[in-house]
Amino acid sequence: MPDGILVFIEQRQGRLKKSSLEALSEAKRRISEIGGEVAALLVGDKVAGLSAEVAKYGPKKILLAESAELAQYSTEAYAGALADAIKKFSPKFVFAANTAMAKDLIPRVAARMDLPCVSDVVDLSTADGKLIATKPVFSSKAQAKFEFVDGSGFLTLRPNVFARSESQNGASPQTEPVALSPVTVRARVVETHAAEGGKVELGEASIIVSGGRGIKGPENWGVLQNLCDVLGAALGASRAVVDAGWIDHQHQVGQTGRTVSPQLYIACGISGAIQHLAGMSTAKVIVAINKDPEAPIFKLANYGVVGDVLEIVPKLTEEIRRLKESS
């Protein structure tokens, strides 16, 4: 009888994804309503050393799927490992953070198990003992609430939305190996290139400074990068400036770009087309700096500054730097 929640914990090159720990924290918050236990799954080569960090978030068990074949992510090898862990633990639900890896992996395994999947979940609740997953649809112009008909399935959770909380319960989890079935890998990662640009990754950044047409030209990215540097923020961009060739697509926020949910989003010279809002409207605090007081971005912004980005942003950078240095 399936029971409990299995949380897929993502690591690359031995580094844990913060958003996986958010998914694990949310699984812990939901487990009393769902029943059973929470298990965390680590997949990779020699990843047992990451158990101590995962254990802080209070899973009852940590399952380890380890082999040399799993050192580098490949859809088929990882799908095999996750499927083996599911057979072993027999969970009602599988949680993962909605990352590039999960978007590739989770539906593949869901199809193998013939179970449904709801992606990019931003809220969870229960009604009549059934889990209800809420996700944005139609460019965040609506939200859809989904029910798992058979009370079982996969969920990927939007990063930065669910709180990460260490467990108060000090009991250390059991660690168990997962016996791996043989897998034929037909598509392999042969190289990985770091993308050009920002030092902080957009998807997991707690602060994003984003630029649009209002920065006037690609020569002015440095103005925004300085603000990023004092805030430890990631650099984002609107579609207009990506299409104009001012910056790489990797930075684009919105439809046909990245969906982000930071604590603070500073939109600099971005008018706020619906396609842009689709990618950032779940940010906790939005600041808009734009010289057009009628720009749609102001409807969404918690704080609106009508003014020239190239005048405001350097002053803002200086003010924050002064503040950080004095505190």
């Binding site: 179970l115 939200q143 609430k145 918690n302």
Partner: peptide, 28 residues
């Protein structure tokens, strides 16, 4: 078909924002 759409709802409303007035130094 194992996942059922219970309902579509409008996105959560954002609180009415503040316009920050004044010259650039005061705004910042």
């Amino acid at each position: 078909t194992k996942v059922k759409l219970v309902e579509l709802v409008p996105p959560p409303a954002r609180t009415q924002g503040k316009k920050i007035e004044g010259d650039a130094d005061a705004q910042v």
